[in-house]
């Protein structure tokens, strides 16, 4: 009987000790983070706006955290390839993904790609928010958004182009049109924003719905007129363009955001460390100037706030995609 007690005592001791050691090792890993190079996965092509953001931020993180942050492109599968790679990475904070709305909420609700964003990931911080805008040619005679809707009512087969079928711009505007009982427009999907813009300039489509930054050179030169923009407030880059809200309309999202995420089981301490480092980086004037030059609208949100946005978007996109089937 007594020996049994001793055994249990020893066992308990061992358990307590080992958990202490592992807790301490865990704490040590958090304190020392990062003690080697960190990989940032970019789900899109090198050189795109996601890649440029990743590189501007990684340069600042590298400077402030003393370890290199390497950007690796893993494009394909509408972002699913990169998301799966990040999901299956060790949850130690050394593999981070720079993701955005599409791969988080659109792709997994469209096909069975093997991840559920709210369940498998936790957000570190939001970096930027890109609003979408509707544009026509300046010489089209369409002066405002309501005139476009009237024009579409009168003219059968009025076309609008986007950067691709089933992408956010398409889903957003189709959802908008589905709530306007007398307006119908014909969607023409292009392969990327550049093709859509060139079709608009060349008078091959009446309007386009795109990320607002796509229009910048033609907005500045006066060739295109922006009729409405998503988001809660007007964009400082396009101050004369009214928001959908001002015009009395609703859109399913205010724009596409970019932010960092890690596998769900990554320790809280590391997530917070990265979150604060990113916040500091975004406050540096040099980083701000670079982002502004590259036409990237920086917009910080904490990991917890971004997590909340992701779970609500994940649900609403599941609903919309199901109803459109």
């Amino acid at each position: 009987m007594k020996s049994k007690h001793i055994y249990s005592l020893v066992l308990a001791f061992c358990l307590v000790f080992s958990s202490l050691v592992s807790a301490q090792a865990g704490q040590k890993a958090i304190d020392n983070y990062p003690d080697r190079s960190v990989t940032i996965i970019n789900p899109f092509s090198p050189g795109g706006s996601s890649d440029i953001q990743a590189r501007i931020i990684s340069e600042a993180l590298q400077r402030n955290m003393g370890q290199s942050f390497n950007v690796v492109s893993k494009k394909g599968g509408a972002g699913a390839i990169a998301m799966l790679a990040a999901k299956n990475a060790k949850p130690d904070g050394y593999t981070v993904i720079l993701t955005c709305l599409g791969p988080c909420s659109l792709t997994p609700n469209r096909a069975n790609v093997g991840y559920n964003t709210p369940k498998d990931f936790r957000a570190i911080a939001r970096l930027s928010l890109f609003p979408f805008a509707v544009a026509v040619r300046a010489d089209s005679g369409i002066e405002n958004f309501n005139q476009l809707l009237e024009y579409a009512q009168k003219t059968p087969n009025t076309t609008f182009g986007t950067c691709g079928a089933g992408l956010l711009q398409h889903v957003l505007f189709s959802d908008f049109l589905s709530r306007q009982p007398d307006v119908s427009m014909q969607h023409i999907p292009f392969n990327g924003g550049a093709e859509a813009t060139s079709a608009l300039l060349g008078k091959h489509v009446v309007a386009t719905v795109q990320t607002a930054s796509e229009y910048l050179p033609h907005y500045k030169s006066g060739d295109l007129r922006l009729l409405a923009i998503t988001g809660d407030e007007r964009s400082p880059v396009y101050p004369d363009v009214p928001t959908f809200k001002e015009l009395g309309y609703e859109t399913i999202t205010g724009g596409t955001w970019f932010g960092f995420a890690v596998p769900k089981k990554t320790p809280e301490g590391i997530v917070l460390k990265l979150q604060n480092a990113i916040k500091d980086a975004l406050n540096e004037p040099e980083v701000q100037a670079r982002l502004e030059k590259a036409a990237i609208p920086a917009s910080f949100l904490s990991g917890a706030e971004l997590d909340a946005i992701i779970s609500s978007e994940y649900k609403s996109f599941a609903k919309i995609l199901k109803s459109s089937d």
Partner: peptide
């Protein structure tokens, strides 16, 4: 763009 130059007519 990073250079602050926006390609286009201007």
């Amino acid at each position: 763009m990073v250079q602050g130059l926006t390609p286009g007519p201007l």
